[in-house]
């Protein structure tokens, strides 16, 4: 069975490979230095590293959508913003 029907492009393949890399990287990090119990962040939520990754990915999706809907500049600015927000989430949430 070929995969033509899935209509792959290198851009979307990179996107999914990056998510897989995040998940594998987080697993290796967890095995090397366990994150331990959830901690309470500035939002009052108890989060583990995995939760923080999920929140970061979801937030970055919304940042990109907001950029496409509201802003006119190049999309990589939204990507940079997402990285900054993700770092903040991992640090403080």
């Amino acid at each position: 069975m070929g995969l033509e029907w899935m209509a792959w492009t290198w851009q979307t393949a990179t996107f999914f490979i990056m998510i897989a890399v995040f998940l594998i990287g987080m697993s290796i990090w967890e095995m090397a230095r366990p994150g331990g119990d959830p901690r309470t962040g500035v939002l009052g939520l108890d989060t583990t590293r995995g939760d923080r990754l999920f929140i970061s990915l979801l937030t970055s999706a919304y940042i990109h959508l907001a950029w496409l809907g509201l802003a006119t500049g190049p999309l990589w600015i939204a990507t940079i913003l997402s990285v900054i927000v993700a770092v903040a989430i991992f640090r403080w949430v």
């Binding site: 033509e4 029907w5 496409l68 809907g69």
Partner: peptide
């Protein structure tokens, strides 16, 4: 994954696709 792939392309059938980037997202949001 297939939906994500379709969302950045256009097609007229027969599994022939043309890359459109984020055009459909911008169009939908507007």
């Amino acid at each position: 994954m297939t939906v994500v792939n379709y969302s950045v392309q256009d097609t007229f059938g027969n599994n022939v696709f043309f890359f459109e980037g984020t055009r459909w997202f911008s169009e939908v949001l507007a």
